[in-house]
Amino acid sequence: MSIEVKEISKSYGGQKALDAVSFSINKGEIVGFLGPNGAGKSTLMKILTTYLNADTGTASVNGSDVAADQKEVQKAVGYLPEHNPLYLDLYVREYLAFNADVYKVNKNRIEEVINLTGLTPEAHKKIGALSKGYRQRVGIATALLHDPEVLILDEPTTGLDPNQLVEIRDLIKNIGSDKTVFLSTHIMQEVEAICDRVIIIDHGRIVTDKKLKNLVKDTKVEQVIEVEFDKAVSMETLQQLPSLTDARNTKGNIWELTFTSGTDMRPAVFDFAQANSLKTLQLSLKNKNLETVFREMTKKK
């Protein structure tokens, strides 16, 4: 087991950041850790990397306890914090050499991580002269210097432009081919493109933990259908539709119909049209994706 978390709780004063959180991650998985701001993501990552101590519960990385075996955990983990700390006046190789001394790794490893993270074209520059995307690459290169088995990335794509997003996404996927990767992000498309599994946390508690391919399929969320009828229909008539929770007339005879149902409601809309002497000129189901599932899981009750 690469990461194991059992009943971890952490409070700041009277505010509980983590409330009896438990999960485990197998070797080689790429797991997305999602949650609203303040949900407890960064706190848990700091506990796993030994920057913080939990109030109660236990956690281990590669079998080493994060409280009792901190040195072993630090050897096993590469960490990119949310606010990537870099010395902007240092050259890329100079900065990596400094960190190589900290980790006590062979200097040959510097060129290996430069090549691995695609830093070669910019490696001769000062970090302060790099774009945000290349600065993130420097942070990831630093996290990889000691060849850790587990990579923990806190918001690795924040502030990147679309091209940089694709580049960092591909880099993380490549790294994940032989390492366990645990990453947090607010960008749902990145999770869908990178991760095998998703853990969602809200108010310090795990609200779901599933394989990505099953999460959207298994989660009951509001279903939105867009339909265009051949003539006007009243709101009162639409109320005949089962499981309808909202109906919004967007333009002319086009309606957005919202249902709470685990089954595709398009056949019901078609049958409704026939029963009321209407024709459906278009009928489409708006895609249910990770973003809709996330909103459903973390919406205020």
Rank of each mutant, 00 (worst) to 15 (best):
84 N>Y: 02
75 K>I: 04
48 L>V: 09
64 S>Q: 15
67 A>G: 12
80 L>Y: 03
91 Y>C: 05
38 G>D: 01
37 N>I: 03
69 D>I: 13
74 Q>P: 08
54 A>G: 09
88 L>M: 12
51 Y>I: 10
74 Q>G: 06
88 L>Y: 14
66 V>R: 01
87 Y>L: 07
68 A>H: 04
81 P>W: 00
55 D>K: 15
52 L>I: 08
47 I>Y: 04
75 K>M: 07
43 T>E: 01
66 V>S: 10
37 N>L: 02
86 L>D: 00
92 V>P: 00
89 D>W: 01
44 L>E: 00
72 E>G: 06
57 G>S: 12
79 Y>Q: 01
42 S>N: 05
92 V>I: 05
71 K>S: 13
51 Y>W: 10
85 P>Y: 00
40 G>T: 01
82 E>G: 08
56 T>Q: 07
78 G>V: 10
58 T>N: 14
41 K>R: 02
89 D>M: 12
87 Y>D: 07
39 A>S: 10
66 V>W: 09
54 A>K: 15
66 V>T: 06
38 G>V: 03
60 S>P: 13
90 L>D: 03
80 L>C: 10
81 P>H: 02
92 V>Q: 00
56 T>L: 15
92 V>E: 00
89 D>T: 13
58 T>E: 12
63 G>R: 05
55 D>Y: 15
75 K>G: 14
73 V>M: 07
77 V>Q: 03
66 V>M: 15
84 N>K: 02
89 D>L: 08
76 A>D: 12
73 V>Q: 05
77 V>M: 09
44 L>I: 08
73 V>P: 07
91 Y>E: 14
50 T>N: 09
78 G>Y: 02
39 A>P: 05
63 G>D: 11
62 N>F: 12
65 D>E: 10
86 L>M: 05
64 S>W: 15
76 A>H: 01
56 T>F: 13
78 G>A: 06
81 P>A: 08
47 I>S: 11
62 N>M: 15
46 K>R: 11
70 Q>V: 08
84 N>L: 07
74 Q>A: 05
39 A>Q: 01
44 L>A: 09
83 H>C: 05
84 N>G: 05
82 E>Y: 02
66 V>K: 04
39 A>R: 01
51 Y>P: 02
78 G>Q: 14
55 D>T: 12
86 L>F: 02
50 T>V: 11
41 K>I: 00
54 A>W: 03
79 Y>D: 00
40 G>S: 06
89 D>N: 15
56 T>D: 13
64 S>Y: 14
66 V>C: 13
93 R>D: 02
60 S>E: 14
73 V>W: 04
70 Q>S: 09
60 S>C: 06
48 L>Y: 07
88 L>V: 07
46 K>H: 09
51 Y>T: 06
89 D>Y: 04
51 Y>F: 11
51 Y>G: 04
37 N>G: 05
91 Y>F: 14
69 D>P: 05
74 Q>F: 11
51 Y>E: 10
72 E>P: 06
93 R>S: 01
89 D>E: 12
46 K>W: 05
84 N>R: 00
90 L>S: 03
46 K>E: 10
48 L>T: 03
78 G>W: 03
76 A>Q: 14
90 L>K: 00
65 D>S: 06
38 G>T: 01
82 E>I: 05
59 A>M: 15
63 G>T: 11
89 D>V: 09
50 T>C: 12
49 T>F: 06
77 V>Y: 01
